[in-house]
């Protein structure tokens, strides 16, 4: 988890020009860091590449729009990192 967070925080800092020390596990990417959907595509691309996964952004967006999930579940960084770890584990289990 911690190393996933470090990688994600570095990606966000570099991609969106946000000071690294303002990014914490409790930061909400949209509400706290002000990242919009287009900037999040760059972050998703960097995360997909770095971890060899495909963040299911469409599914997440649909769940939020349908009221089945909250943005906190996917966009608070500690939760995002947990999702990334799950996707990496699923990929490794299937390999």
């Amino acid at each position: 988890m911690s190393s996933t967070f470090d990688q994600v925080a570095t990606i966000i800092a570099e991609t969106c020009d946000i000071p690294r020390d303002t990014i914490t596990p409790d930061s909400h990417a949209i509400d706290d860091l002000g990242i919009d959907s287009l900037d999040f595509l760059d972050i998703a691309f960097a995360i997909d590449k770095a971890f060899g996964i495909k963040l299911p952004l469409e599914k997440w967006t649909q769940e939020v729009n349908d009221g089945k999930a909250t943005t906190e579940q996917y966009f608070v960084l500690k939760n995002l990192c947990a999702r990334i770890d799950e996707l990496v584990a699923a990929k490794n289990a299937g390999a």
Binding site: A44, F45, D48, K54, E58, K59, T61
Partner: peptide, 9 residues
Amino acid sequence: VHEGSGYAI
């Protein structure tokens, strides 16, 4: 270059 979820490069 990359095919993501709902986006491509």
